[in-house]
Simulated assay, not measured.
Amino acid sequence: MQIAEPRHTFYLRCLTTFRRLTALVLLGLLLSAPDLSAKPQLTVESVTSSATLPAANPAFKHPNDLHQVFFLQRNSNANTIVWVAQFDPDGRLNPDRPIAGYWRRFAGRGHVMAFRWYERVFGFGTKSRELADGSGFEVRFNGIKSEQLLLKQNGPFDAALYTRQNGRDLKMIYGYLEVDESGLLPKVVRLRLYTSDPKTGQYSTHTIAVSGGAFRE
């Protein structure tokens, strides 16, 4: 005979799922460049340069996966989202699916885990379109379809993801989110985006404060 799940356990499971969904929506939104007219509101606090890549959290391992183009970490735990370029057998970007993402579960064994359907559909999945001039692929995250990124091939089996800031293409390396989970809904309070300038070799840390970071329908 199957034993029914206790009601309080069912409610807790539903709440956990809801919290994950709202967090995904927020994380997706915050991967975009600052848009001060949107909610939540983002304010650039500073942009600093350095000769070496800073570690937002030295306790968290940085992934170094094959064909990696970007990764995202949070202060919540060491689990990291990784996006990689995909190539055909000749080393050219795959026109059908040039970029793919997944979890690297560093809080566990460091194993790879596919996105859940809602993570892919509402947050971390991507849509891509080859540019008419053949210079690369326009990439948009499902959570931030308004923000256009460029996936550009630099050589056989070699590609990078770029964002345009002040007329310059900066290579995206990783993002780090500070999330306050003390309330009913997760609240993002700060985003740090780490890029490099291909022309100078300098790294930039874009520190962005977040207000109104709690998700509301």
Results as ranks from 00 to 15, higher is better:
11 Y>A: 13
12 L>Q: 15
13 R>Y: 00
14 C>R: 15
16 T>M: 12
17 T>G: 11
22 T>L: 12
27 L>G: 07
28 G>Q: 05
29 L>T: 10
29 L>E: 08
32 S>M: 06
32 S>E: 13
37 S>L: 14
39 K>L: 09
43 T>A: 05
45 E>M: 04
45 E>I: 00
46 S>A: 15
47 V>E: 14
48 T>Q: 08
51 A>V: 09
52 T>D: 10
54 P>L: 07
56 A>F: 01
57 N>H: 10
59 A>L: 11
61 K>V: 13
63 P>F: 08
66 L>K: 15
67 H>L: 00
72 L>G: 03
73 Q>K: 09
73 Q>Y: 04
77 N>S: 11
77 N>V: 01
78 A>H: 05
78 A>V: 02
82 V>R: 07
86 Q>F: 00
88 D>C: 02
89 P>M: 03
91 G>Q: 09
92 R>F: 15
93 L>F: 09
93 L>K: 03
94 N>R: 10
94 N>D: 15
95 P>I: 04
97 R>Y: 03
102 Y>H: 06
103 W>N: 10
106 F>I: 07
107 A>Y: 02
108 G>T: 08
108 G>I: 01
110 G>D: 03
112 V>H: 08
113 M>I: 09
113 M>T: 08
116 R>W: 12
120 R>E: 15
125 G>V: 01
131 L>E: 13
131 L>T: 04
136 G>K: 05
139 V>F: 07
140 R>V: 11
141 F>S: 05
145 K>P: 01
146 S>P: 00
147 E>H: 13
149 L>P: 01
150 L>T: 08
151 L>P: 06
151 L>V: 10
157 F>D: 10
157 F>A: 05
164 R>G: 00
164 R>I: 04
172 M>S: 13
181 E>A: 12
183 G>L: 06
185 L>I: 10
186 P>Q: 06
188 V>P: 02
192 R>Q: 14
195 T>E: 09
195 T>Q: 12
196 S>P: 02
196 S>I: 13
197 D>H: 07
203 Y>Q: 03
204 S>A: 11
204 S>M: 12
211 S>N: 11
212 G>S: 05
213 G>R: 08
214 A>F: 00
215 F>W: 14
